[in-house]
Design a binder for these strands. Structure first.
Lengths: 151, 151
DNA sequence: TTGATATCATTTGCATACGAATGAATTTGT
DNA sequence: ACAAATTCATTCGTATGCAAATGATATCAA
């Protein structure tokens, strides 16, 4: 085939599809996250991952402001408000006003909330384990190290 | 200290906090995904990642049913409908009925949609690059391999 | 062929997720 | 001390994301 014909062929071809959505880190990240949420829901039906995160963090740090809690669990102020509202409606957290700084809304676990999170933590371990099950122990270590760098 | 006192100490201690939310794969996955979405928005302001995914996939496969498209980009039927509705409202995709199978709603790029996705793909490469910037090239290869296993 | 299944799309309801705007309260800088 | 900037919380609007229910159509199986 002549050089001229080769050039024509290239020009007439469909646009190069050398961009593959399924190889992009964002797309795969979204799918991996979806899979995790699905595994979570299969183990813990009555709480979402963000709700669990809020309870688990309150268990760690005790009473904090709503805003501070949001920072700790990587949640927008508007988002954390909704999460806390729903946990409050279910009696798992209680709210109070900060005596000194009147802007702050303090959040804390109720006794029921503490019971719940203590009961759920073993299940959360299973969730982590199942999420990572496709990887060998060595791969898990590598993956977690690299993922942490990206987050 | 006597053995008895040691035991008392242990009993009186706060509950063991050996579950660390920030070390759980689900929590870090959520944060990594958030960071990616934020990088995406900084580069492509007028389209969301799911909207981009829909356009990019339509570019790959051409006209398909809404449902099939959802499968290809890992989206629930209810979710994909919303995404396509918004792309349609902006004139980036067009809908038509399948002649044979009357259940199916065919989706395709408009000329404007094709222009848009071709224009955006170079930006998407930048987004992928920036998302992976914390990793060395070798780490990127390792990470993508392991992430794919989890997704 | 027809009754049971399965598929496609839609709708509703609920739960993140975040930008932007707003108001109240506090802190900072001079 | 006081004006400017910051922080905390709320609200609104928009966009995923998914379960469950529904209706229309198509396929399968006895």
């Amino acid at each position: 085939m002549s050089e001229e014909n080769l050039l024509k062929l290239v020009e007439l071809e469909e646009p190069e599809h050398d961009y593959h959505l399924q190889e992009q880190v964002g797309f795969i990240l979204r799918k991996a996250h979806q899979r995790h949420v699905s595994i979570f829901a299969a183990h813990i039906a009555d709480l979402t991952p963000p709700q669990f995160a809020a309870l688990a963090k309150l268990r760690d740090v005790g009473e904090t402001s709503q805003n501070q809690l949001g920072t700790l669990i990587a949640m927008d102020a508007a988002t954390v408000k909704g999460v806390i509202d729903r946990l409050k409606a279910r009696g798992l957290v209680e709210l109070s006003k900060h005596e000194v700084d009147k802007r702050r809304l303090l959040v804390n676990l109720t006794a029921q909330g503490r019971d719940a999170i203590e009961r759920l933590i073993p299940l959360a371990r299973d969730i982590t384990e199942e999420t990572l099950a496709p990887l060998s122990p060595k791969e898990v270590a590598t993956f977690m190290k690299l993922l942490a760098k990206l987050a």
